[in-house]
Design a protein around this nucleic acid. Structure first.
Lengths: 334, 334
DNA sequence: CTGAAAGCGCTAACAT
DNA sequence: ATGTTAGCGCTTTCAG
């Protein structure tokens, strides 16, 4: 088998011009049906595989979409990426994935690389430090459309798919209040991203609307992992005026909280309720199962994809914002 | 800003030939240091970004590695992919990721696509149905090296990074025996892959070496998820002669088992021990935490990458097999 | 409906 | 050390 068959090989086998082969294989231009069939048969027979490198080069644009995320280890991002790839591939796009590792510098390098690859479009969730500047903005110069999901820089002029985090936190607190909780703490993040700020704001507003006092000492901050939740739960529970409900900004944190609470013998949810964010499958493994604020990933994926494709197809940038409404998934911890 | 700057733009700005620019930017050939600096400065100033599409096309090979996995949702694969991407990117490769969705047909399409993209190399874990044929074999015709990890087709003539699953299961059973268990059940998979067969064989051998009888009714089969483990645990525990230890072929299954056992009030590990495979972080969320057979992902990633790069660099296919030795991570369930 | 010509941006090989 | 030439495989444009 010849190592690489080109359209010219197919053409010469058939004694016709390679341009006709090109046309036939792509179903464009006018080619007699008979010829077209003949060409396809021969191409198949010879094992011809279109050289995407040449095609992309010639077309000055790769048929590839890029996804940039902080990492692939969190279930939220890996599920997003997984779903996005499926729908993109169905639509005939290839997907390149990049992890910024939550590092702004790496994110910038990735963006340069994206430009080099002339990707057709980009979907991104920015690093924890990408707040006051928008490194993706240079994509506009290259006419590469992009969409932010979940996390976006402040005041970014770009298409965005965001979750109504305010509402999610608000509903979570309200759920705990309804089940009789009165001293609800919040474990927040160290970072200044809107998603974290909004959750905090929703928490505060829910307290207020339910006639509960907002107390500074009921707010603590944690990193991203289970152990961080465990540690902060300890701090909260050693206060004189213990909480009887804890909202965590992530499910992993919430699980850490539950682990600590069980260690000290607190009953969940009788003595204290716990709610997390993300609908992470890990929440199903703990006991009781973690009640969580779900941000529908399929909805985010679909919206991101639509927003991106719209821009690609119309060759016009859009700055549309889509807001996904979250939903509380009631399990055992409230 | 001009939408796309090419080396010719840089060249004409400097009144020199574009080939010199090409050489300077790639640090190849001989270019006077002074000229080189000048060129780099100007390129930077103009915002020149090398057109990877053209480079790849011209070089007839993309500087891209492909990773093909059944899915990205399982923590095992997402962690592998995440780690692999990091090390590949550090080495200057881009990475394309593909999900076969455990479907052989999709896997074949992906392989065609890989060839079209002229990727430099492929790392793959095959679908549950890719057993008796090796669809990746056609990559050899295209001179694209590949490495299987974790799962490979039977008798594949290809580089492979496999885990000693026999030993993992053997050690897991032995651990349970040491803690006094005598009726150890195994929840196996429905599929005929070597990894599953090896685990079963290791289980059997460990029973034998410990003087325990092998009993057909202590083997059941489950799907991939928590609920499957839950269901099979129920079946096992409703037998007249209940097990006092359960080995599960995956951590998610093991977690389902634990959930069922706790539901019926069994004490873990006093009444019954549980061990899983994969060191899935989910195992940390349940209580007691799940003891597991760890297959070192960093080791698998490093070996896969080395095996692949070795082939790429030497332009020679290798059929080397690397075996990763598993390790029991003792947590609370034994 | 088919063919001929040209060129995308880059780099290897050869020439100066 | 730099320039010239040629061409990768494909597709668009124009001619017939």
């Amino acid at each position: 088998m010849k190592s690489t068959i080109t359209i010219k090989d197919v053409a010469s086998e058939l004694g016709i011009h390679h341009v006709t082969v090109s046309r036939a294989l792509r179903n464009t231009g006018s080619v007699k049906q008979e010829t077209r069939d003949l060409i396809k048969k021969k191409a198949n027979e010879l094992g011809y595989k279109p050289n995407r490198l040449a095609q992309n080069f010639r077309n000055k644009r790769s048929h590839t979409l890029a996804v940039v995320v902080p990492n692939l280890r969190s279930n939220f991002f890996s599920k997003f990426v997984s779903d996005f790839m499926e729908i993109a591939q169905e639509a005939g796009y290839s997907v390149m994935i990049f992890q910024s590792g939550e590092e702004l510098n790496l994110e910038k390098e990735i963006i340069d690389s994206l430009i080099g690859y002339r990707v057709a479009g980009v979907v991104a969730s920015v690093t924890k430090d990408t707040i006051y500047e928008n490194p993706f903005d240079i994509l506009k110069d290259e006419n590469i459309p992009y969409v932010f999901f979940d996390r976006a820089p402040k005041q970014a002029k770009a298409a965005q798919v965001l979750v109504n985090n305010f509402q999610g936190a608000y509903d979570a607190v309200t759920a705990m209040v309804k089940s009789g909780k009165k001293r609800i703490a919040y474990i927040s993040a160290h970072y200044q991203h809107k998603i974290f700020l909004d959750r905090l704001a929703g928490y505060k507003q829910a307290l207020k609307d339910n006639g509960l006092p907002y107390r500074e000492d009921m707010i603590v901050k944690a990193g991203f992992f289970m152990k961080d939740g465990f540690g902060q739960a300890k701090i909260l529970m050693e206060k004189k005026d213990k909480p009887d409900g804890i909202l965590a900004f992530r499910d992993e944190i919430g699980i850490g909280v539950i682990k600590y609470l069980k260690k000290i013998g607190a009953r969940i949810p009788e003595d204290i309720a716990v709610v997390g964010f993300d609908n992470d499958p890990m929440g199903l493994a703990c006991e009781p199962e973690l009640t969580t604020v779900q941000q529908s990933i399929p909805a985010m994926v679909a919206s991101s994809f639509d927003l991106l494709l719209g821009q690609i197809k119309s060759d016009k940038l859009s700055f549309e914002k889509m807001i996904i409404e979250p939903k509380i998934i009631y399990r055992g911890s409230v």
